[in-house]
């Protein structure tokens, strides 16, 4: 499993898309890949923040991680609708980060 790379946010988006495409069957590999990439993305932001450039995106990213993790470990049914929302938030975040 790869994580990080130069664009962990975009990789997370790809993995999340793969997971969403797999509906109705939960795809553990894609979801754990998405989580790993999101965390690598966050690690980058954290490292940047500690260098004195605190990121306003951190909270958005943390919230996305919370929702993606809930897709992987749902209480009851997989919250697909929430994962779709998270996918949108992540796309915005990645676009902002790139922009």
């Amino acid at each position: 499993m790869t994580a990080g790379g130069d664009h962990p946010g975009r990789e997370a988006l790809t993995a999340l898309d793969a997971a969403l495409a797999q509906r109705p069957h939960k795809d553990h590999s894609s979801l754990s890949q998405a989580t790993t990439c999101l965390c690598a993305f966050r690690d980058n932001l954290i490292a940047a923040g500690r260098d004195g450039r605190p990121s306003p995106d951190m909270m958005r990213l943390n919230a996305i991680i919370s929702v993606v993790l809930a897709g992987h470990f749902p209480l009851g049914a997989v919250p697909w609708d929430e994962l779709v929302l998270a996918r949108g938030w992540l796309a915005d975040l990645v676009a902002d980060a790139d922009g």
């Binding site: 993790l69 809930a70 992987h72 209480l75 919250p79």
Partner: peptide
């Protein structure tokens, strides 16, 4: 507020993912 299952087994898997 919770979003999902954060019991010990998912916590263990999340730890390995870097959460």
């Amino acid at each position: 507020k919770l979003t999902g299952d954060l019991s010990q087994e998912p916590m263990t898997l999340a730890m390995a993912s870097g959460v």
